[in-house]
């Protein structure tokens, strides 16, 4: 424990680096997967192409991808951007499938009636399809968030500083306190991200909050009665 306090500044710095490096892939992956997922939900061909591509991308081992990216984009091996790009690819690979399912989950009769009362295609996408896909998109982005935060630690092996550096350093020195510290910090970052996502979703999807609060209350009432 003493070690943690004496090295608090280092750990805090690594935590901030970890947050910074994982936020970008999560946000960019989410934004990219929206149009791709929507396309996949609209046509069978697009769906099979995009989901297969996503599946293949996800099977590439992360270390290999971290090393391959600089070769492909022509940057330096130690550039943290390599890791950010690789993690974005993973995020999209996971998220496209969920986004496709999310858009497919929008009730067809609601879409139909929205068109029938005079929403144009673009208006319907932003005012109807996107918000109604929200709950499933949320489920997907929570998975992406956790997976990105933990995958990032592998970047430490190729020298990109983040909380994973506590693992590499701890292993080399056979110093378990450091490894445990890294593990707990990564879990905390993942947890904070998850809470932030859920709070954002509650603010953006008030109708969902009410109906789920209602069903929770109904459950409680049934439980109390039985």
């Amino acid at each position: 424990m003493q070690w943690v306090w004496t090295n608090f500044d280092t750990i805090w710095g690594l935590t901030l680096a970890h947050v910074g490096l994982s936020v970008i892939p999560i946000v960019v992956g989410f934004v990219l997967s929206i149009p791709l997922g929507y396309a996949a939900s609209r046509s069978k061909v697009a769906r099979s192409v995009l989901l297969t591509a996503g599946g293949i991308l996800y099977t590439i081992p992360s270390l290999a991808l971290f090393v391959a990216i600089p070769v492909i984009i022509g940057g330096a091996i130690l550039d943290p951007r390599n890791v950010v790009i690789a993690l974005t690819i993973y995020a999209v690979a996971i998220m496209v499938r969920t986004a496709a399912d999310a858009f497919a989950s929008v009730p067809a009769d609601v879409q139909d009636s929205a068109t029938a009362i005079g929403f144009s295609g673009v208006q319907r996408f932003f005012a109807v399809d996107l918000p109604l896909a929200g709950p499933v998109l949320l489920a997907g982005i929570r998975v992406v968030s956790v997976s990105t935060v933990s995958l990032l630690s592998i970047g430490a092996i190729i020298g990109v500083s983040n909380l994973g550096s506590l693992f590499t350093d701890g292993f080399q020195r056979n110093f378990y306190t450091e490894i445990w510290t890294g593990l707990v910090c990564i879990l905390l970052v993942a947890l904070v991200f998850d809470v932030v996502l859920v709070v954002i979703a509650r603010i953006l999807m008030p109708w969902n909050r009410r109906s789920s609060a209602r069903s929770v209350r109904a459950h409680a009432r049934r439980a109390a009665l039985s």
Binding site: D109, D112, F119, W207
Partner: peptide
């Protein structure tokens, strides 16, 4: 789109926007 906005439409499952 303009035509649809000038005509009232009611369907079986009300078709209301749930959100």
């Amino acid at each position: 789109v303009k035509l649809r906005r000038s005509i009232g439409y009611v369907m079986q499952q009300s078709g209301l926007l749930p959100h």
